[in-house]
Amino acid sequence: MKILIWNCRRTGNNTFKRNLRELLRAHKPEILVLMETKVTFSSFGNFFNNLGFSASTVVDPIGRMGEIWLLWDTAHVNVHTSSVSNQYIHATIHKEDYEEWVLSAVYASPNPVTREIFWEELERTATNMNQAWLVAGDFNNFTDHSERRSFTPNHNFTRAQRFRERINNCNLIDLGSVGPRLTWTNNRQGLANTMERLDRAMSNAQWRTLFFLEGTVRTLPRTYSDHSPLVVFTQGKLKLNTDGCSRGDPGQSHYGGLLRDEVGSWVWGFQGYLGHCTSLEVEIWGIYRGLTIIMQKGMSNITIERDFQAAMDLIRDGAASSSPFRAIVEDANFFLNRCQCSIQHVPREGNQSANALANLEANQQEHLIYLEDPPSSILSLLITDMVHASVNSRRD
C-alpha cells in the first residue's frame, strides 16, 4: 500500500494539477492526503474522480484554520472516518489481505496555542488506541537542531523538547525517511534561507511490526510547494543499482550507484573516484560504497542489482585468502548480511542509470559524492526505467 502526503500550499491552479498528476502517475498511491489547500473541495468538480479518487473526507478552510483532504481509491481500499477536527482526520483503513488499521492525517496549526490543543486530543486518542496506528502529516515543529538549517539562530529549545515529549506520550515511533531530510523551506535566498523537517510519519509499535518491516517513507523533492511530499510505502521493495567504469584494465576508475523505489523513482545516488585500478576492483567498490550508505542510513532489506557477475560472486561467496580484494570483500559481505540485503544479477540494459553515473564525470576526483537529486543528464534513463518498472508490476 502507498500513501501520498503533501502540504501543497494552495490548490486549484493548473500548475498544482499538473504537479499532482505527475506525482500520482509516478507513485500510484491508494490514499492521498493534501493540506493547506486554500480552496474548497467542491471547487474541483470531478477532477479527483477522474484521477481515480472517488471517495473523500474533507476539512475545508475556515479562515486560516483547517484544510485537510483525505482521498482514497475505492477500487483498492476502503476508509471509514471516525473523527474530524481542523487539525486532523482519524480514519480506519480496510484493504483486502491486510489487517485493519488507523490513519491519523495531521495538519498541526502553526499557532503554538492551537497546536497544543491538537496534542492534547492526540494523547487522549493514543490512550485508547488498541489498533495499528499511523500518524502522518505536517506537524509544524521539529525535534532538535539536526532538523533545522538556518543562519538565523533559534534558541527555542523548550519547543523542540516539548514536541519530543508529546511524541513519547503518544507512544509513537518516528519512521524516518529516505531522500532529502529537511521537508520545508522559506524559499529565501542566501543567508536568509531556513529549512526544517516539519513533515513526518510516525506509528505505534503494532503498525510498524505489521506493515513497515519491508516498508519505507520517502521524502520527495520539492516542486510546486515549499513542502516536500512524503510517500509511505508499507511493503515497497527498494533496489540499489551500482556500476564501475575503468578506462583501461587497469586504468583510471570511477563508480556510481542509485537507490530507487519499486516504480523506479530516484531516492538517492552516489558517485566517486577510485584512482588507478582494475575493472573488477572498481565494481567491488561500487557495491561497497552503496552498502556503507545503506548502513549509515539504518536501512535494510534492499535488493542490490549488478551486471558484473564476478564482483557479485566475490561479495556473496567471499574472496580467497591470497586475493588482493579480501579486506574490501569481507567488509562488503559484512554490510550485506548486517543490513539483510540481497544481491542479484541484471542484464546490462537494466543497469544503464548506474552506468551513466559511473561515467558522468570523467575528470572529477572526489572519493565519494552523495546525490540527493538525479543529475539532469540521466533523467531520460530514469524515466525509461520507471516505465519498465510499471510494466513489470502490472504483469506481476
Rank of each mutant, 00 (worst) to 15 (best):
M1N: 08
I3G: 01
R10T: 11
R10H: 03
T11N: 08
G12Y: 04
G12E: 07
N14A: 13
N14Q: 13
R18Y: 03
E22G: 09
R25I: 04
A26E: 12
K28N: 10
I31A: 06
T37D: 02
V39N: 12
S42M: 10
S43W: 01
F48D: 02
L51D: 05
F53Q: 06
A55C: 10
D60Q: 04
P61F: 10
I62H: 06
G66E: 04
W72G: 00
T74W: 10
H76F: 13
S82Q: 14
K95P: 00
E96R: 15
E100D: 13
A108F: 03
V113Q: 13
E116G: 11
W119Q: 01
E120P: 00
L122M: 15
T125I: 09
T125V: 10
T125F: 13
A132F: 05
H145R: 15
H145E: 14
T152K: 09
A160W: 07
A160C: 15
R164V: 02
E165V: 07
N169C: 11
D174V: 08
D174E: 11
D174A: 12
V178N: 08
P180T: 10
W184T: 03
T185L: 00
N186F: 11
G190P: 05
L191N: 14
N193I: 05
M195H: 06
R200S: 11
R200D: 02
N204M: 05
A205T: 15
T209I: 03
G215P: 00
T216Y: 06
L220I: 05
R222C: 05
Y224H: 15
D226R: 11
L230M: 11
L240A: 02
N241H: 14
N241S: 15
G244A: 13
G244Y: 03
G244Q: 08
G251K: 10
G251T: 10
S253W: 00
Y255R: 06
G256Y: 02
G257K: 02
R260V: 03
G264Y: 01
G264K: 04
G264F: 01
W266L: 01
V267G: 00
W268A: 00
G269R: 01
G272C: 02
G275M: 06
C277G: 05
W285G: 01
R289L: 05
I293A: 07
S300E: 14
N301H: 15
I302L: 08
I304T: 04
R306C: 12
F308G: 02
Q309L: 14
D313R: 14
L314I: 04
L314M: 08
I315Q: 02
R316H: 11
R316G: 01
G318R: 10
A327N: 14
I328R: 06
V329K: 01
D331P: 00
A332M: 00
N333M: 09
F335T: 03
Q340N: 12
S342I: 13
Q352V: 03
N355A: 08
A358P: 03
Q365V: 13
Q365A: 04
Q365H: 14
Y370A: 04
Y370R: 13
P374L: 08
S376C: 07
S377I: 10
L382V: 13
T384M: 07
V387A: 12
S393L: 13
D396A: 15
